[in-house]
């Protein structure tokens, strides 16, 4: 029974993955990729990795489709001639991808026996941190440096996106996300859904301390709601030079770094928390990070400035 379920999942995943590569139309490929994301969410659920499944549901279901389909719309004018890359380039790319794929497969298929695990060590020290979700404990206590750098990478990514703007437009508004044809249905959804989404996003962040959930899932949900509002033309993307906006982008990583530095004085060193205060500090960092992630993701989808800043 469970073997049959696994086989079905593998079959579906392979179908979606292969179709993502084979689809001739770029938009068809994106749709297949969205399907792949939903299927992966189910796979993570089957593997009992609820945190990852939640992330995949939020990112795959909400953000990926928006990012990629927006990219499709932007690429069309650039590639209007529709010329395919030459055969030699295609073969080279194919071979490289195959090598990378084979290496990854080799790594995954040959783990040492028994597989190395730090899970017992984490479980033994859960009480020191005061949270009940082991994933959050690992992400924000034991491997806080990784998590911090991940968020800093997001900020760098946003700066990279912004840097694509011509000098003239620097600091201006990104192109409108408004749908090509106004739709009452879209407006209706964008008026009704975001308050509920905001509540669910905050819930995922808050709940993440003790149960599956967390900053990235919650932040993605919040970003999706903001993007929905922008697409329904109920709010324009903000000017990228707006100070308030930039503060929101920076607040999460900045607070994280500040807490890390405070660790020198109040605890054992960088990113270590004073005993007894780990939980409130982690929750505060998570809230700030979720806010930053939401704003950064929204701004990344909105893209580089496309208008001169208002005078």
């Amino acid at each position: 029974m469970s073997l049959a379920v696994d086989l079905v999942m593998v079959l579906l995943i392979l179908t979606a993955a292969v179709w993502t590569i084979l689809a001739r139309d770029r938009r068809d490929a994106v749709i297949a990729f969205i399907v792949l994301g939903l299927l992966l969410s189910l796979v993570w659920m089957r593997l009992l990795a609820v945190d990852v499944a939640l992330t995949e549901a939020a990112v795959g279901g909400g953000a990926t489709g928006l990012v990629l389909l927006r990219a499709c719309a932007r690429l069309l004018p650039v590639e209007a001639d529709g010329a395919l890359p030459g055969l030699r380039l295609q073969v080279a790319v194919g071979v490289l991808c195959a090598v990378v794929g084979a290496c990854l497969a080799a790594v995954i298929l040959s783990p040492p026996e028994p597989a190395p695990s730090l899970a017992p060590a984490v479980a033994a020290h859960m009480e020191d941190v005061g949270l009940k979700n082991p994933v959050t404990v690992v992400l924000l206590a034991y491997r806080a440096l990784d998590t911090l750098l991940e968020k800093v990478v997001l900020v760098l990514g946003l700066i990279g996106v912004w840097a694509l703007a011509p000098d003239l437009f620097w600091g201006g508004r990104p192109a409108s996300l408004r749908a090509a044809v106004p739709s009452g249905t879209l407006t209706f959804l964008a008026r009704v859904l975001p308050p509920i989404g905001v509540l669910i996003g905050i819930y995922l962040v808050w709940n993440g301390a003790d149960h599956p959930g967390g900053t990235f899932q919650g932040g993605t949900v919040l970003a999706a709601m903001w993007l929905l509002v922008m697409m329904a033309d109920l709010g324009d993307p903000p000017e990228t030079r707006a100070l308030r906006l930039r503060r929101l982008v920076a607040v999460g990583p900045a607070l994280f770094i500040a807490v890390g530095l405070a660790g020198f004085g109040m605890a054992d060193g960088f990113l270590s928390y004073p005993p007894g205060y780990a939980k409130p500090i982690i929750v505060a960092v998570e809230v700030a990070l979720a806010l930053s992630i939401a704003v950064i993701l929204g701004l990344m989808v909105a893209g580089p400035a496309a208008k001169e800043p208002d005078q």
Binding site: S183, T185, L186, V192
Partner: peptide, 12 residues
């Protein structure tokens, strides 16, 4: 809610 709106969006 999602079904009611998604179906109309796809139809449009």
């Amino acid at each position: 809610l999602g079904g009611a709106t998604a179906s109309q969006l796809i139809a449009e």
